[in-house]
């Protein structure tokens, strides 16, 4: 996996993703050092495209985050 970014999943790679998936703030403005540190142990809670709070389901080996507008992303947490 790539280095953790606070943006979380980008459900639609072609679209702008200006929001931090961890804290929901603007990625270019607030300080996201804590979000970057948290990312390996925290699923994203905010949609990177629209900042909506996502519905997040964590099960032992995967998590799924769903934005009502931008859809769902599922990621395994172990290989």
């Amino acid at each position: 996996m790539d280095a953790p970014t606070p943006a979380g999943p980008v459900a639609r790679p072609g679209e702008p993703a200006p929001w931090c998936g961890q804290c929901g703030e603007d990625l270019t403005e607030a300080d996201h050092a804590r979000c970057v540190r948290a990312a390996p142990l925290e699923p994203p809670r905010y949609c990177a495209h629209c900042r909506r709070r996502m519905v997040v389901q964590v099960i032992p080996g995967t998590w799924t985050a769903t934005c009502s507008r931008h859809g769902s992303v599922e990621q395994p947490t172990w290989g």
């Binding site: 390996p40 142990l41 925290e42 699923p43 997040v56 964590v58 099960i59 032992p60 080996g61 995967t62 998590w63 947490t77 172990w78 290989g79």
Partner: peptide, 14 residues
């Protein structure tokens, strides 16, 4: 406890 928790993620069980 192995794997993820209820709302947060755990280490790789391996």
């Amino acid at each position: 406890i192995v794997g993820n928790y209820l709302t947060t993620l755990g280490r790789d069980p391996k």
